[in-house]
Design a protein around this nucleic acid. Sequence first.
DNA 1: CTGTTAGCGCTTTCAT
DNA 2: ATGAAAGCGCTAACAG
Lengths: 339, 339
Amino acid sequence: MKRITIKDVAAKAGVSHPTVSRVINDDPQISEPTKERIRAIMKKLGYRPNLIARGLVKKKTQVFALVIPDLNPHVQPIVRGVIDECRRRGYGLMLFSTEYWTKEDETYSYVVSNWRVDGVLIYNVVHHERLTEDVRQLKAENVPFVFINKYLHKKNVNTVAIDNSQAVRQAVENLAGLGHKRIGILNGSLMAVDGVERFEAFKESLARLGLKFDERYVGNANFSDSEAAEEARRILALPDRPTAMFCANDLMAMGAIRAAEAMNLRVPADVSFIGFDDLEAGHWFKPALSTLRPPLRDVGGRAIDLLLKAIEDPRRKPEQVPLLAKLVLRDSCGPAPKN
Amino acid sequence: MKRITIKDVAAKAGVSHPTVSRVINDDPQISEPTKERIRAIMKKLGYRPNLIARGLVKKKTQVFALVIPDLNPHVQPIVRGVIDECRRRGYGLMLFSTEYWTKEDETYSYVVSNWRVDGVLIYNVVHHERLTEDVRQLKAENVPFVFINKYLHKKNVNTVAIDNSQAVRQAVENLAGLGHKRIGILNGSLMAVDGVERFEAFKESLARLGLKFDERYVGNANFSDSEAAEEARRILALPDRPTAMFCANDLMAMGAIRAAEAMNLRVPADVSFIGFDDLEAGHWFKPALSTLRPPLRDVGGRAIDLLLKAIEDPRRKPEQVPLLAKLVLRDSCGPAPKN
DNA sequence: CTGTTAGCGCTTTCAT
DNA sequence: ATGAAAGCGCTAACAG
């Protein structure tokens, strides 16, 4: 059960093993006919380079690490994107979870020093400010890293993130364009980056459009449909209820719409709703959900791109890549009611 | 930026580097005081063993591979379980997707030969019979592997899987116990293992209980809520409609219940429903969904266990581990109506 | 253009 | 109980 090595190939070809190595690495010094001949032999013997051995000398493992808090539905397409891109680029991907990491843990040291990965992708939805500590650890390990969906506005780290400001602004501007003046929000958890950013962006957008921000129109629904329904019931019962609601995710939008309908409000005739995520369910939902579609699948690819650039040129200055969500208009929002 | 090696530690301790190696591997030959002393030095210098170098000589990487088709919600808790267990056992985890793998690809060879993983976990929901080819490849690579949620009844491979037969039987027996005679099914995709197995188990359970299996009560809804709603509308419009429906997942159950309600049927007074998965949403749903709760989080741990056993004793004969789902009774099923 | 030599950081005989 | 020497499979000088 011994595996074929470079030396077996060399012996069969009647050359030295470094020559085979050069063929593998496509060294231009080797003549084309020799290359062809040796490649044929490698193929015939079923030779596979041993990345472990190569890693030992090159100090490169051809493996990246992806560190995530948990596998929520948001993370899925991102992970998929990362896997695909790694495969395309000839990298392997190791997956780590931060879930049980404690403060005392040398979290990133574990990933980098132990597994000798060539780069780290960090997806961390929690809004908790560990930034400085994380970055310190990572820099100490001297490994390139990029953050995903976080720290888009920090100039000293590599980041790829959905641009919440741009996304929310589109939604609010669209509602304003439809004549809505009283616009409410069902917000996600303020423990999460997305929750905070979308809320801030919402307030800014209203301000920019000269619309009033009304505390009473704010529902904190924690990204959950049932909580959204509850908050929607409260907000829509107000005498001067909003005529449109921006919802920080589709789940909440759907929960809220069902609640509105249960109150005999017509959507979108009486109230308009717009969500965020573009869940598949939003297609099937009635009324079909207007929403913001974040290019999640691209996130992974762009993150790997950045990582690769950082590897090529270690003194390259950090870059922040905002990814733009697309406004998808369907049936859940319409012109503001006349009254 | 040079990393601390075994030699640095040896120099500092005034011993030879193999001695340090022995300490790392807790060789009983080394005296306890020496061990203590050297361990202290390792700690002080911040030494981390280089698994790559170790891997080269031991021909073990301390890494497992998890191969999945995609990251659907089902897979999440399983992946989480696998990650956690790997971490506990000191293994790393590489993640691969089969999505774009074609027939010609040497899929598992790629994973094993290229990345030299110590074992492979395979989660493959598609019912397509690649078993023999997959197993052939894996055996040729001489690497331990275990299937997840598949091939529970093949005696020649290691498997950890939710026992669909046992699960579905519980559900059907419970409905029968409530007096239901006409029991229908909303089935998942027959392209998926779970779809096929649950359907078969459903028919067997009816037979065992002496209940009639009626083709008209079968809805093929592809694991989707909207398709389930559609099929439910058709089935519940029958003059002799079923009084209970087993649904192969919660999503379909919820879709079907909403459809039933829209037909002015009361749940569970007129029709009972029971789902599968125990989604979080089922808690919040009204009526709270009765369902089967598969111990998904355990799957990963058990799979790693099997893998480790297979590594310890390569000539160990394959084992099939069925994991039992728990029947969770809530409000969506009740006694059969009198008429 | 290709072969020789050395070495990546570790474990593993074999001595002592 | 510990050291010396060899080698895992590969790449990187340095020759020639």
